[in-house]
């Protein structure tokens, strides 16, 4: 698999897939998609990158430890749930705001924050599993 073409294309492919994964994540509320699917697409992107350039490259590219990303995702998801406490409504109640940026109304919600948390958990946990398995006895 370590062909020149693959190694050349892989970073671009990865970037493209990562971008696509975020797109899938964000549109998930109204079209097919969401945190789980988006996260899995991102993991695939990283897997391709890893196969092409080695796992140390993936670790460098991620900057954070994948488990830390996963934990941060769980933290965000909890935060999204707990935000409702500030408004005196039950845990996990969806909260929506519609700020207008540059003349475009952008719907933001605690639900979306929660979905981002799901995304990060999936990306972090599964990437860390894949990396650990790929690393195998190397280290």
């Amino acid at each position: 698999m370590n062909t020149l073409i693959f190694r050349t294309v892989a970073p671009f492919l990865t970037a493209l897939m990562a971008l696509f994964s975020i797109f899938v994540l964000l549109r998930g509320h109204n079209e097919p998609g969401g945190g789980f699917i988006g996260g899995l697409i991102a993991v695939s992107a990283l897997a391709i990158f890893g196969i092409a350039n080695g796992i140390s490259a993936v670790r460098r590219a991620l900057w954070f430890h994948p488990m830390a990303i996963s934990a941060f995702g769980l933290f965000i998801a909890c935060l999204a749930g707990l935000m409702s406490a500030a408004f005196g409504v039950p845990f996990m109640t969806g909260l929506w705001v519609y700020p207008v940026v540059l003349g475009v109304e952008i719907p933001l919600s605690s639900v979306m924050l929660f979905d981002i948390g799901v995304y990060l958990v999936v990306v972090g946990a599964i990437t860390s599993i894949a990396l650990a398995l790929e690393a195998g006895d190397d280290t």
Partner: peptide
């Protein structure tokens, strides 16, 4: 699906 994948990965390891 996601959970069973995690479970599968755990068993595999």
């Amino acid at each position: 699906i996601v959970i069973s994948f995690s479970f599968f990965a755990f068993l595999l390891v």
